[in-house]
Design a protein around this nucleic acid. Structure first.
Lengths: 204, 204
DNA sequence: CCTTCACTTGACACAGTGTCAATTGACATG
DNA sequence: CATGTCAATTGACACTGTGTCAAGTGAAGG
């Protein structure tokens, strides 16, 4: 396995993201990637120990391109807890469809690959922290619904925002992205904000 | 493939459910099943065309044992819409952990096997009908929150009750079954019942 | 006795991942 | 120019699990 910055290594990562971006499915094979990168299948293993490691590295590669960290930051600027909750839900919800094609292979590997499962779990754990921060901001403002502890509310919000739910609503239910975002925001407010104050319920 | 009622066929199905029940993991192999049934791996294919078909048949076998249809029925007896919603959520929530070991292999095959995906989708579609009936009962009582159409409310309830969310809450979040049920019921009421009338928020 | 039928035995094909040894070709350095 | 290094190639093979096939066995039953 060569050093972190190798031209070929970058080519492999780029080939992987390109294939996923183009919708060739989350079951991209090592040989597909190699061909796209213009090298041999075996040569891929000179740079990545196995498929899981390659896919994990690919997600970091995507992070850089998408400036992922900057995406969730704006919610931190929110003044009130309610604003923060809204902003966070909105930011994450808007982020899902962008990263979905790249996240999916990792999700798919989870059941069989320990490393892949761990990598995905870590990302989701990070996302949980955003949920917790939003809930804590509500609590600080005394706006957290009395029915939930911070922990329980965080777990519920975290669960609602799972990629699988986005998948289900947009695919099985055929919802538009806008409808998804609107409803998620609405649910979060209704469930976690004291008194369930909800501005309006637009149809999306 | 021999006729539907063959002693061996039953033995294979029983072997499969036994293995899953005992927690040998949702990745049971054809050879594991064959050994457990006391026959050859190849002989399994005398009764089932492939792994997907076997697993699908296994779920029907489990349906019979668990009298699945009877489980969701009680909610139909509910007088008010609110009672029906409660009853349905509770019945399904209680049902999940029982069927989970048998459902999981099918869920796992979904991404790669058309037939498995279809079989699972059909089951979930049935479950959706229960959701819709509950929401419609609310609507009839003029108790459906004005924020949602029947369709949207059904989709949301349906999504909330997905097995993946139960998995996430009980596994990733470490929730007890009781806590899961309590919170799901609470959410459903809060989200869909006009005025969000909620009795109490016990900690489970 | 002979057939039928379920099952066994032993073999093989196929995909996809991962590994290995020998080789090539470029580039760099003495 | 000779030599060594290093990335990549070539061709092969192992492994796992699914699914298939042909020939053989053994018991039940007309």
């Amino acid at each position: 396995m060569s050093s972190e910055n190798s031209e070929t290594r970058r080519r492999i990562l780029q080939a992987t993201t390109d294939l996923l971006q183009e919708g060739h499915g989350a079951d991209v094979r090592m040989s597909d990637i190699a061909r796209r990168a213009g090298i041999t299948r075996q040569a891929v293993y000179l740079h990545f120990a196995n498929r899981a490691e390659l896919l994990i590295a690919m997600t970091f590669h995507v992070d850089e391109i998408k400036r992922s960290n900057d995406r969730l930051a704006p919610s931190r600027a929110a003044r009130t807890g309610t604003e923060r909750l809204d902003a966070y839900v909105e930011a994450w919800a808007a982020y899902i469809p962008e990263i979905y094609p790249f996240a999916k292979p990792l999700m798919l590997m989870g059941p069989t690959d320990e490393a892949a499962r761990g990598a995905w779990a870590r990302r989701m754990q990070d996302m949980r922290e955003g949920c917790e921060a939003a809930i804590q901001a509500l609590e600080r403002d005394r706006m957290l619904s009395a029915e939930h502890t911070v922990d329980a509310a965080t777990d519920l919000l975290w669960t609602m925002m799972q990629v699988e739910n986005w998948e289900h609503l947009t695919q099985a239910c055929g919802w538009s992205q806008a409808k998804y975002v609107e409803n998620l925001k609405h649910m979060a407010r209704r469930l976690f904000v004291v008194d369930g104050s909800v501005r309006s319920a637009r149809e999306a």
